[in-house]
Design a protein around this nucleic acid. Structure first.
Lengths: 332, 332
DNA sequence: GGACGCTTGGAATACGTATGCATTGATCTG
DNA sequence: CAGATCAATGCATACGTATTCCAAGCGTCC
């Protein structure tokens, strides 16, 4: 039923080997035969079998992308450019979404069906990297900074971004400041918190545990955290959120609580998703180039696959920038 | 370097064939040998090669999912449950996002690397179904209703949903009503518009072209449409949007224009994405079970792959339900 | 005119798994 | 006890492509 290179060979009156060569522009085939083969392939509507090619070349031109939860608005903005860049580089994308990536480990990602993997999940406790190493499957971290010397990662200057926000809040006169950070097992959250804390300390501002919440980078985290923070004896005048999605949860909770932003509360996010610029939010946040982050990860992975990457590991860091919109105000 | 079933066979002291059989629980292998093979495989950390298996069985356990644009908040809510359901059914998901699916046709989806395809793109003009048919690759439409007898589709009762909204608006006393519908080349948009128009007509309410906008199911469509609709001589008192994403664009445009919703304008969406329930929106909309829509599509596709589906085609239709929130009001 | 190099294309094989068929030994039946 | 039946396993091959090795043809140079 399916057309193979043998069928093309028969029609063109050449050997199967010649068909393979002709279609791959091997210089050892004459222009005339190439044309003949081309026409035969066209006539039969021939498409080379991916499985046959994979078995022969030991390369699949396929890359796995592992994300936690696609319905979290953050991920699509990294998956989409990843897809595009990988496509441009001649690779297909295999999307794998898993709550815990122990489940991913249970999956057979290791069956040689992937040329490489992009790890875009947040958690630092996964055994997946070790397993990939053992099987010799190249991978890169996206938005996760292990600090391990040999690793490959495309990351954002999270610490710098955290500092930026602390600086701004201090300058605006805020002293009772709260933080909603990512889970402690995400480097993204940890680094943002670290930079934020350091810069706050330099400004002589404390950050007591009573004004700190940690949780997943999800809408609900922000939505549920705000009431708790407000219930304290000395409620905060400003909240720094670990990312925009959390901040948007906070903004919605503020509406529910009848709080006016920024008059009653300053809210600052991180990422600058398109959503952050919507009129209903006009969220003040920290921008970094998510598209470039993804592109960079894709290119790094491909370089690692082709052996062009630095064997000692590579760490590509993107800068951050403060984006003032309408959710921050000077304390009066 | 990589471990094959031959290596396992050597270690276990059996033939490669026996390894294959033992690991696939073939009843024709004794419990003792099975155990011996299991242990050997375990010791070597053996994982069967996907490519070899594919070549041999002519099945890839891989399904392509084609979507237009992942950054459109609608798609993640269909891709995520699709992924989960396919996973549960033992298939992997290959995500393909393309602006135009002519580009998809250029892709080699036809190289036998997919057991089936879910078409979740909106446009009706694609040549892709014809190409898949020609190559005998099973596929289903998700949220697209071709009306062709032999097709397989998982859809929503869009016409019924449109009727619901028209009924509500009429009952609320609205007479100057606007519609922002999907592109004319999407059946989703067309059917919603159709039901809406029919029910409006039955209520004796007109829908002049000056109060109709058509465009992609995107945020910008709604955001840019509202000012134009408001500029008319007799601006509408209510807007029905082809989906929630468009409605959210409208709500943001309303904020930008200083309009109060629902006092000045009633806005109604379609889909009931989680976002629609956010405090800042509290969007009145039409609900259908997006998760079930995806699940149903996955199961239908798998049934078609295994030959269990009705050869005459199948069309699974999900009901809709009106969800009153805070963006609609009675005309005073 | 013979050795040699270059070009072109065919034959053969590797890649890893699944499976039809053959083989072997054992158990059962009349 | 001979022959039939059956369980368990090995042998051989198919799947489709890429590639290595080899052969043939042809021109060139000294």
């Amino acid at each position: 039923m399916t057309i193979t290179s043998h069928d093309v060979a028969r029609l063109a009156g050449v050997s199967q080997a010649t068909v393979s060569r002709a279609l791959r522009d091997d210089h050892r085939v004459s222009a005339a035969t190439r044309e003949k083969v081309r026409r035969a392939a066209q006539a039969l509507n021939y498409v080379p079998s991916e499985a046959g090619r994979t078995l022969s070349t030991r390369s699949t031109r396929r890359i796995g992308v592992i994300v936690t939860d696609l319905t979290n608005p953050f991920y699509p903005h990294v998956v989409a450019p990843l897809h595009d860049e990988l496509h441009a580089l001649g690779y297909r994308m295999m999307l794998i979404t898993e709550r815990s990536d122990e489940a991913v480990a249970g999956e057979n990602l290791l069956d040689q069906s992937l040329d490489g993997v992009v790890l875009a999940t947040a958690t630092t406790e996964s055994r997946l990297p070790a397993q990939l190493d053992r099987r010799g499957i190249p991978y890169v971290f996206l938005n996760r900074d292990t600090g391990q010397p040999g690793d490959y990662a495309s990351v954002v200057d999270n610490e710098g971004g955290g500092r930026l926000v602390a600086g701004v809040l201090a300058e605006l006169g805020h002293r009772r400041i709260a933080g909603i950070f990512g889970s402690p097992n995400t480097t993204t959250g940890r680094d943002r918190e670290l930079g934020f804390r350091l810069a706050l300390a330099e400004a002589g501002i404390g950050l007591p545990d009573s004004r700190v919440v940690r949780g997943a980078f999800e809408y609900d985290t922000g939505y549920e955290a705000l009431p708790r923070l407000l219930a304290a004896d000395e409620p905060p005048t400003a909240v720094f959120c670990g990312n925009d999605v959390v901040a948007i949860g906070v903004l919605n909770a503020a509406v529910a609580a009848g709080l006016r932003v920024p008059d009653d509360l300053t809210v600052i996010g991180f990422d600058d998703l398109p959503m952050a610029g919507w009129e209903v939010f006009r969220l003040t946040t920290v921008r970094h180039d998510l598209r470039e982050l993804a592109r960079q990860a894709a290119r790094l992975l491909v370089r690692r696959i082709t052996g062009e990457a630095d064997p000692a590991g590579e760490r590509l860091i993107l800068p951050t920038e403060f984006v003032p919109r309408a959710t921050h105000a000077r304390l009066t």
